[in-house]
Design a protein around this nucleic acid. Structure first.
Length: 646
RNA sequence: GGGCCCGUAGCUCAGCCAGGAUAGAGCGCCGGCCUCCUAAGCCGGUGGUCGGGGGUUCAAAUCCCCCCGGGCCCGCCA
């Protein structure tokens, strides 16, 4: 299928490729250095020439002339190039560009990112919350980012495979399974009886079991006084919120009469890992129940997956055992603190330091001794990272992937680094070097610190419900007499848009303080603002009726505000492409806000449907259509729902 | 003790990776705009020792070094 390029993308291609040729640099470098000029009067694309001009002894004016000739030869007649103070600036001739855009719009085209020259098969693993409690705001950031990344990469022309890893074999899962075992409850049945979402019921049992065991430990061996108070407060809160009468006391009694509560947890862990019944089946039922609730929340949030990978499947199918065998045969096999381990420091010395490519892509911190990786506990069960080695290989294999992106919190940098190094040591160089840890910082709540093992967390469901409640008020006030179902539907979209936008707009390495009032007040520079702008474009076009592109005069697009709208709408495709390449959804978010500001500004100044001149009116309508499609594409890529009216 | 991340306007953040063109938004605050396409909007004003110090460079918010403040990690947790 032939790719249809808009005038800006075509100019961008011709501009960067001719510069690459003239300066003797790579095409990619030329593309990277080409920026949006800081001031509109400079042009639509800018390139800093001074560093090359100086070195190559080139005269900027002459380079401009050469690039101009190249553009002409490439048939790009709607852009001109000039040298200004060491910069090479390209400026679209708005009327000529508009004429082409009108034809594209008529044919159903939208400003999507141009296809990548190097399509790959990419696995994006994200969210992967432990199946032991509801999704909280930290997971929500993971989902919002991971899903936006997947959408961007797909739009850029990669084949994307979205996977959720179900960590049902870890220590935390063992706590909740023990809780259900002691209570003799079936998770789904109990949730039904309590009238709760299954993940909420599971979350309560998890927090109660964990907290009671911690309290028991403290009671027996003593603990710092501060922690005692904290435990007592947590226990009181958990008791108060027990989902079914008597549950808390039953659990308390069972745990306080145990000889070695933590030993019991370890026992459950072994039973799950080695698939001993009935615990193994119970563990599955617990995880499945939690997952049912998690899936429901994710569906509401607009996030979907291609595959759900169970940690226990990796264990029970023998995949983890095979990796362990490989490790034992490896020259990097060692013992650390008496346990079976991989000699990571030696892998660094022998395989990373002498290998420049590995050095660059593994992202090894300077001067930091990475500790050995223990593979197996002394009771024979494996550790998370051991299973993750098997899982990573499985992801490559199952998807036929060239690249794997793990969306995982920044606090897991060390284990993710160890994972890459372990793969390298075991001979999986390609897999190690193409594994990206996309790390993001935490979501903080003002005044509160989330601790899911104590049941202190703000769930995504709660936040969405609150956002929706506020949106319902607003929508109702603005649309008196509107049917209730419609109000609900729109409010839900606004809620999802507000939360998702708040979570992708800030760059990942920056911690977010989730301020309810700011995110939910819906008036800030936010998702709903973009949704509102989109609804405006729809409203105008609905009143205007079908656009007569033949009657539209592209010459009307020369006026500065209109030409700005034209260029910035077109830029959406280029911005999305770069956001995909840089794994930076926030760049697209920033761009869309700028586009919306521009549109709203213009909207206030000029009327579309009341313009008496047909030539001018149709041109404006075409611009509105262009903005609408840009917002459609952009918001779609960020997973923000659209509503034609709000 | 070591490693990593963050520090830009009163607040929330772009810009830093790939050094260059008068440091940008939004919120807040002050003052305006709805007989006219949705005022969840728009216009004008206010507001900055780019955490501090040194260095590299024709040029530093951006690169390097030191320091300060905050966060995370250094576990047979993940």
């Amino acid at each position: 299928m032939e790719q249809r390029l808009d005038p800006l993308s075509e100019a961008f291609e011709a501009f960067t490729s001719s510069l690459a040729g003239i300066l003797g640099i790579g095409r990619l470098e030329a593309e990277r250095l080409t920026v949006k000029p800081p001031r509109e009067e400079y042009g639509d694309l800018g390139f800093p020439l001074m560093r090359y001009a100086r070195r190559l002894g080139l005269d900027p004016g002459e380079v401009a002339a050469r690039v101009s000739r190249k553009l002409e030869a490439a048939g790009v007649s709607w852009a001109r190039v000039e040298a200004v103070g060491g910069f090479l600036n390209l400026r679209l001739d708005a009327p000529a560009a508009a004429e082409r855009v009108f034809r594209l719009l008529e044919g159903g085209w939208a400003p999507r990112p141009p296809g990548t020259p190097e399509p790959r098969v990419v696995v994006v693993e994200h969210t992967s919350a432990n199946p032991i409690h509801p999704l909280h705001m930290g997971h929500a950031r993971n989902s919002a980012l991971g899903d936006a990344l997947a959408r961007l990469l797909e739009a850029r022309g990669h084949r994307v495979n979205r996977r959720f890893y179900v960590n049902d074999a870890g220590l935390q899962a063992a706590y909740v399974v023990l809780g259900f075992k002691l209570l003799g409850l079936d998770p789904r049945e109990a949730a039904g009886r309590a009238g709760l979402k299954p993940d909420e019921l599971v979350g309560w049992v998890y927090a109660a079991t964990h907290t009671l065991i911690d309290a028991e430990k403290v009671r027996r061996s003593g603990a710092p006084p501060g922690e005692l108070e904290e435990l007592a407060a947590s226990l009181a809160r958990l008791r108060e919120r027990e989902p079914l009468p008597g549950l808390f006391d039953r659990l308390l009694e069972a745990i306080s009469s145990m000889e070695d509560p933590e030993g019991e947890v370890a026992g459950v862990l072994r039973d799950v890992e080695f698939r001993r019944e009935p615990t193994a089946s119970l563990a599955r039922r617990v995880a499945e129940a939690a997952l049912e609730g998690i899936r429901e929340t994710l569906a509401r949030f607009g996030v979907s997956f291609d595959a759900w990978d169970w940690e226990t499947d990796l264990l029970w199918s023998g995949r983890v055992a095979r990796i362990l065998e490989e490790a034992r045969r490896s020259r990097y096999y060692t013992r650390h603190k008496g346990a079976e381990a991989l000699d990571i420091p030696r892998i660094v010395r022998e395989l990373v330091l002498p290998d420049p490519e590995a050095r660059r892509r593994i992202r090894l911190p300077r001067g930091f001794e990475v500790p050995p990786l223990i593979l197996v506990r002394s009771d024979g069960t494996t550790l998370y990272t051991t299973r993750d080695i098997a899982y990573t290989l499985y992801k490559y294999e199952a998807a036929g992937a060239d690249e794997v992106i793990n969306v995982v919190g920044a606090e897991q940098r060390l284990p993710q680094l160890q994972l890459r190094l372990a793969l390298l040591g075991l001979g999986y160089r390609r897999e190690a070097l193409n594994l990206t840890h996309y790390d993001y910082e935490m979501v903080n709540l003002p005044g509160r610190r989330m601790r899911s093992r104590r049941g202190i967390l703000v769930t995504l469901d709660e936040v969405l419900d609150e956002a929706k409640a506020r949106a319902v008020e607003e929508v109702r006030a603005r649309n008196p007499g509107a049917p209730r179902e419609w109000v609900e539907e729109v409010a839900e979209k606004i809620a999802v848009g507000a939360v998702r936008f708040a979570l992708v707009r800030t760059s990942a390495p920056r911690p977010i303080t989730f301020d309810f009032d700011k995110v939910l007040d819906l008036r800030e520079n936010s998702g709903p603002y973009l949704q509102y702008t989109y609804a405006r474009t729809v409203g105008i076009l609905a009143k205007h009726g079908p656009i007569d592109y033949r009657a539209a005069d592209p010459g009307e697009c020369g006026e500065p505000q209109r030409r700005g709208l034209l260029v910035e709408s077109l830029r959406t495709g280029l911005v999305a492409a770069k956001a995909a390449d840089d794994l930076a959804p926030e760049d697209l978010a920033t761009h869309l806000l700028g586009l919306a500001d521009r549109f709203n500004s213009w909207y206030q100044m000029e009327s579309v449907i009341h313009d008496p001149s047909e030539a001018s009116r149709e041109c404006k309508a075409a611009l509105v259509e262009l903005v609408k499609r840009a917002l459609e594409v952009g918001l779609g890529l960020l997973g923000i729902p659209l509503t034609p009216r709000m």
